[in-house]
Nucleic acid binder design. Structure first.
Length: 428
DNA sequence: TGAAATGTTGGGGCG
DNA sequence: ACGCCCCAACATTTC
């Protein structure tokens, strides 16, 4: 049984998928696989909504393939072990997958490539989840950018030269013909989550600049999880955009900016990008952190956001900034705590963006907000949810005595934050 | 992609 | 008509 193997990872679609379309041209029938990686899953609960989403996305692909006599082969366990099993079972000629830039994934893929090379198997990997990857947008001296504005300028100038061609529709007849059952959630030891990924909504493109700051209005695209798991291609999103929404495009460039930051400076994973802030003394009060997580700080704008996150796996962008600022500046809790909580809850969690944006809010990032920028949770409410539609939606008890008093007084907290940062910088 | 403090300007009321 | 004061609105600086 001679095959080419295509490995689905975070590109869970058949359409406009670079490595897949190359695999289908490899000259051998393509056996598509997916591996539920225990190294990653061990950190998650068995009903994590992201697992449910991955499972359902694979199921959809599998249904399409079955019409053509094929199916996806699903593994669960250690990826390298899965590959060794595959090598025992099939005569593998070529292997195709798309690039993944996260530290763990890089290491995993390097090990696999070594293993394949040792067995004399060709492997090919492709840029697919970004327009420009790690070393494609560099300064004239060949070094990576660490300032967004400069990165963006270069990105745009290169983008004008680049054609974003759509891949032709895949020929499903070229998949390897075989039949094995698609495992149930229970067989994989998962349970279905009540929290669901929503379909994306591209109709907001073009008006994003007007609606993006109003959390009560549904002017978000809900693209995050789809870009994270590749159920839509970034090229397709960009094509729809056609530069008509500069602000939205900017957000997509931030995504690639943070990806290349993580790639070039992997230490940001657990360290401040700017060492200047290493000596800030965080208060890290567990009970205050818990109140923040539960949406019980007594500040409606903050609490509404945290409850939306907990109940749905989403949080409006404006509110993400305000809640992050509140945790870091008002409560003086280490940004890594907030980063970890968002990583656990956000359906669109992406290591590079989550880390980059938390460091931005903390002022510790490469191109971050200045440390003295402290969001006023009351002003934010007045500015962006004056009618209180958003906060009432997420805090039903808001006008009852059940709703708590503010955990801390704003002006005093602000002064304390400025003082703490100043002291920390001096210690350095 | 902030907020608060401080500075400046200009219009209106009033003696 | 003029100076003076008040204050809102806007601009600039500072954290």
């Amino acid at each position: 049984m001679t095959v080419t193997i295509y490995w689905f990872r975070r590109d869970l679609r058949l359409e406009d998928n670079l490595a897949l379309s190359h695999a289908l041209k490899s000259g051998f029938p393509v056996l598509p696989i997916f591996i539920f990686d225990d190294n990653i899953l061990d950190e998650l609960s068995e009903d994590d909504p992201r697992i449910t989403f991955i499972y359902e996305s694979l199921e959809k692909i599998d249904i399409k393939l079955r019409k053509y006599g094929s199916c996806i082969k699903i593994f669960k366990g250690n990826p390298l072990q899965a590959w060794k099993d595959l090598m025992d079972e099939y005569d593998i000629k070529k292997v195709y997958f798309n690039h993944d830039y996260e530290p763990y994934a890089k290491e995993r893929d390097n090990q696999l490539t070594e293993l394949l090379t040792a067995k004399g198997i060709e492997s090919h990997s492709f840029k697919d989840q970004v327009i420009f990857e790690k070393n494609e947008v560099l300064k004239s001296d060949g070094k990576p950018y660490s300032i967004f504005t400069h990165y963006k300028r270069k990105w745009l100038s290169q983008f004008k030269k680049e054609l974003v061609d759509q891949q032709e529709a895949p020929d499903l007849n070229l998949f390897f013909k075989y039949h094995i059952s698609f495992p149930s959630l229970e067989e994989l030891h998962f349970t279905e989550s009540a929290i669901k990924v929503r379909p994306y909504n591209l109709s907001i493109l073009g008006n994003y600049v007007f609606g993006r700051d109003v959390p009560s209005e549904d002017s978000t695209s809900y693209l995050g999880p789809h870009l994270r798991f590749g159920t839509i291609s970034i090229r397709m999103v960009i094509r729809q955009l056609r530069l008509k929404d500069d602000i939205f495009l900017s957000e997509l460039i931030w995504r690639e900016f943070f990806m290349q930051i993580l790639y070039h400076f992997p230490r940001v994973v657990d360290q401040n990008c700017r060492a200047k802030y290493d000596n800030i003394v965080w208060l890290n009060k567990e009970e205050e952190f818990e109140k923040w997580c539960q949406g019980k700080t007594g500040y409606p704008f903050i609490d509404a956001g945290m409850r939306q996150l907990k109940q749905t796996g989403y949080m409006h962008n404006r509110v993400r900034m305000a809640t992050a600022s509140f945790l870091i500046k008002h409560l003086l809790i280490d940004w890594r705590w907030g980063e970890a909580y968002f990583a656990q809850k956000l359906l669109d969690y992406e290591l590079s963006s989550n880390n980059g944006n938390w460091q931005w809010a903390a002022g510790t990032g490469c191109d971050a907000a200045p440390y003295f920028r402290v969001f006023n949770p009351i002003t934010q409410l007045l500015k962006f949810d004056k009618e209180m539609l958003y906060v009432r939606k997420w805090i039903p008890e808001i006008e009852t005595p059940e709703y708590p008093e503010p955990i801390i007084e704003h002006a005093a907290a602000r002064a304390r934050a400025l003082e703490t940062y100043k002291t920390g910088i001096k210690l350095k």
